[in-house]
Design a protein around this nucleic acid. Structure first.
Lengths: 191, 191
DNA sequence: CGCAGGTGAGACATTGATGTCTCATTGTGG
DNA sequence: CCACAATGAGACATCAATGTCTCACCTGCG
């Protein structure tokens, strides 16, 4: 019994700390362990009891980001309907995690990129979506799926930062990212 | 006379140091002053004589990046021909500075963004290009010029990082960035 | 009541980067 | 050849963040 209660309480605290840390690091990626602790309303000592160090915290945030992306991919039902609509659903579903993704995207430039199995799985699922769109004749084939995946991450991070600075309105996130990725800046004569 | 020689020698050294620093920081944005000095083939003391500190170095790199962007904007002749072609010329001209821009783009998330007059001027020039394209009926009007400018920076940085990790070939830089920004992922029925 | 686990506060040593300083060396121009 | 200016090498103090530790507190539960 005591073990059950213990586990549950730890899980709740851990999740709360992670979410506030994500929110803070999204705004200030160089925030100190002390600042993270204060933001979460706990002491630095307790923060250290939950996460062995800054690396452990960032790795936990990475896991959280991966999990939220996986959830967004699931919710977007990438296999259903046209690839374009799947992309729009994906961008829409991923918006709540955009800030966290932007932080992780910036951090990932420091690590050895592409080594993590979680990211590889995400890349593969997104890449498969673009491949499907290409095979269906819906997407152009001169832009590689790898680049489209990379560009999607980049546009999400760019838009998250632009929102943070007030240059893009939050309600426009999905439209700005999805429509630029899908249709680009040029007008469509046909539509 | 001695003053003239002095100035010229300093200028040459300074430029060489800046370029190697840019190349290093592009790959490892957390590189130490010591690493920067070693990369430039000078001692840390000399590096400090040229740049008062890390902040001064980064600010000098920022000036260099701005200057290279301005040069690219000039070379691209944004006022000539269609806006699409101007964008393609711009991306092509800006490629040599892509790594440095990617570094600065990542760093800028730490500063108070949009405060620098140099960046504001660049943003204005790029924004004007997108406005011209919209007014000519060439670009869609539901994507704001501010977002298109932001997206251009983001795609340049993303592609620079993807090239660094070997996910995109350097020769494809212009095509990947410009075509995605202009035309997006969807196939064009008309073309 | 008493206690055990979790916590907050804070002291402490450690580490890594930074900025400053000195001194010997070099090499270039006068 | 001499003098000067710049450099390289390294010692040194400083500073900020980190990780570890102790101790007091409180809170719930037996």
């Amino acid at each position: 019994m005591s073990h059950l209660r213990y586990s549950r309480l730890m899980a709740v605290d851990r999740d709360h700390v992670l979410r506030t840390a994500a929110a803070l690091l999204t705004r200030k990626s160089t925030a100190t362990m002390d600042e993270v602790a204060k933001a979460a309303g706990i002491s630095r000592a307790t923060l250290h009891r939950h996460f062995a160090g800054r690396d452990a915290l960032v790795r936990a945030l990475e896991s959280l980001g991966i999990a939220e992306c996986e959830a967004a991919l699931d919710a977007a039902r990438l296999d259903e309907g046209s690839a374009s609509e799947a992309v729009r659903r994906l961008v829409s579903e991923i918006q709540p995690a955009a800030g966290l993704l932007a932080f992780l995207y910036g951090e990932s430039q420091l690590w050895e990129a592409g080594q993590d199995a979680g990211w590889q799985r995400l890349d593969a699922r997104m890449g498969a979506l673009f491949v499907r769109g290409q095979q269906a004749g819906e997407f152009r084939i001169d832009l590689t799926p790898v680049w489209l995946t990379e560009a999607l991450y980049g546009l999400i991070a760019s838009c998250a930062w632009a929102m943070h600075d007030g240059r893009v309105a939050p309600k426009d996130f999905t439209h700005m990212v999805a429509e630029l990725l899908l249709g680009g800046a040029l007008r469509r004569e046909e539509s």
